[in-house]
Design a protein around this nucleic acid. Structure first.
Lengths: 352, 352
DNA sequence: CAGCGCCACTGTATCGTTACAGATTTATGG
DNA sequence: CCATAAATCTGTAACGATACAGTGGCGCTG
């Protein structure tokens, strides 16, 4: 056997393991290189050969070895979802993961969940991914107006998408919920119910959507002529107990609010508890509009007006956007905003 | 330069990229093999050499290239969490993922989420992982008494852990919630409140914990002398609307139950809605005990007795168990059962 | 018919790591 | 003083894929 024959595997590949390019090369009598190029539809391979290779590959269920591809090309086929461990509250992660995987299912991408402790450096997981080349694309959430993660990822040229916008003059893919619109419509709803003294349970001030929600709230107050009651010392990142206690105090004060806008579903639960601890009744002494990621509030407290944020759809949009970014589509085309959906009452079935 | 010199890199490695074994070999003047073996603490490397290598590796922040290791050894350093896309209900996935990643954070393992559509074949993702060698270990949930996934994984020798037990005479790692105990204690609670006609919202019959929960329920009925009201045509996998409607019908019947055991938190919500649609009052016409994965029910409906299933802890246990299995620990030592925790009332803060 | 270009295919080297089989040096025993 | 062992280190090949630089055959041109 002369040395020329190395690329054409005359030795059958070990049949115990999974098929490789070598297996197909052996079966078709072609060279490994040819098989590789045939499968990527390269222009210098004959049409009939491609067809044969594809057929054999399909027959034996060939799937490229990820480690081989990754080692040679650097392509990981991994999307990394970077999460705070603390982000679990009200289970926003579940539908998000579901939405993402729904989209990734039709692609070669896998989803890797990369957590970080909120008490530590939010940049740490990003650095890890950059340093080790752990992913082809990254999904991050809880964005800040000047987000160092966005800066770093942009600088290093790693495709990413944010759940939430930034304000740094960098055009990047994002998906966001229209929190401004939400708060504006929430105010409208409350004023339509005759409420005039409104309070907002807002996001923590360092996150971008804080200002969106506040802007919508204040715009609504102006347009519909209502007044704000201050509740700035508390936000949706506080514990339920803290929110409840603070709100009870507020409701017991001389001039309590009669309309409540809650920026989170779990926050709404604490607000309700605080209101009731102050011996007030929801729907009578005050009305509430809340953003919610699920159905529960609507089922248990139908008197709360709920606006649904579909996290599953967000997951889908985010996944599509990172992949788009990886594929080189311009960032401007990878930005989307989802609108709050005013939820109707729980469906009532017709009784026989 | 003679051919002997290939393993000792006299050429400095490309300094643009991340450090490799070659980088360390160049810096220490050692061979690549030596460096590799030094870092794994192999017995044939001198103590002083090991120390030097470790120091340099640490200094330059060396991290093994996962693709290289994976290609050479087959070790992926991946744990795969296999989920139904439909499993999102009541957000069980979130705390689970958090728990798992908490444990994996201290290891070289990454968490990959591998979903499947419940309407399709539950074996498909398992086969994929086996065929492509995509993971070193697998976490599966929603186990059945005779679970084909467990059979396949055992047969093929891939380490795994189940969330839930099986009944197939195969000893394998698992973590489970003691649903029997839960139902038993739930019955006790209800009888102590004077309830005698009890109904169970049970798991779907094909899952293993169906029989656990039923056994506990029936055992409780016997021990505490209460009667069962049939509700077998409905289980926790039905939609909220279906559960509510069926339960409303039951509550409107001639001889409705006065005690309710709910096998799921979201199911409880629908049951409450059904009960109230039948113009009954929770706590008066009937009492309810529910298994819950979160705080919400306790906050919104304090009259429901809740038993907490800590999914985050489950995630931690599952992660520890797969890793243990991978490391060759005997399966018998990797089995755990967590007990229901009767939740106290929502904490009340002391008012000034 | 030499020369050229094109088509279809192939060999080699390489990514980073590790298993394996040496190789070198020094110590030990007879 | 030579053979042997022990201790420590090293080269080669391979995992599976792909970039790159060919190679051989064929037809066409002048």
């Amino acid at each position: 056997m002369d040395s020329k024959t190395k690329n054409r595997p005359l030795t059958p590949p070990p049949d115990g393991g999974r098929p490789t390019l070598k297996t197909i090369a052996f079966m078709t009598g072609l060279g490994i290189t040819t098989v590789s190029r045939a499968l990527k539809d390269a222009p210098d391979i004959g049409a009939e050969t491609k067809e044969r290779v594809r057929l054999v590959a399909k027959q034996i269920g060939y799937q490229p070895n990820r480690a081989g591809v990754r080692l040679r090309t650097g392509k990981t086929n991994v999307i990394s979802l970077v999460l705070t461990l603390e982000e679990e509250i009200m289970g926003i992660t579940s539908p998000m993961v579901v939405g993402i995987t729904e989209v990734l299912a039709g692609t070669p991408y896998h989803l890797v969940v990369t957590p970080y402790s909120a008490t530590k450096d939010a940049l740490a997981p990003i650095r890890y991914i950059l340093d080790t080349g752990a992913a082809d694309g990254v999904i991050i959430s809880r964005t800040e107006p000047h987000d160092p993660r966005v800066a770093l990822l942009t600088e290093r040229g790693l495709p990413f998408v944010t759940h939430g916008r930034t304000e740094m003059g960098v055009v990047h893919p994002y998906h966001d919920f229209d929190n401004e619109r939400f708060a504006y419509e929430a105010v409208r709803e409350l004023v339509e119910r005759g409420r005039k003294r409104l309070v907002l349970l807002e996001p923590p001030p360092h996150l971008t959507f804080y200002s969106h929600m506040r802007a919508g709230f204040e715009h609504g107050l102006r347009d519909f002529q209502a007044d704000a009651v201050s509740f700035h010392h508390i936000n949706i990142d506080h514990t339920l107990v803290e929110i409840r206690d603070a709100f009870e105090t507020l409701m017991r004060s001389d001039d309590p609010p009669d309309g409540i806008v809650s920026g989170s579903g779990s926050g709404a639960i604490a607000l309700i508890a605080g209101l009731e601890a102050a011996k007030k009744t929801l729907g009578k002494d005050a009305d509430m509009v809340s953003k919610v990621p699920s159905d529960f509030l609507r089922w248990l407290r139908p008197e709360v007006v709920t606006m649904y944020e579909d996290i599953r759809v967000a997951g889908r949009e985010l996944a599509k956007a990172v992949i788009g970014h990886i594929d080189g589509q311009p960032s401007e085309t990878l930005q989307s905003l989802s609108q709050p959906e005013l939820q109707s009452a729980v469906p009532v079935s017709i009784k026989r």
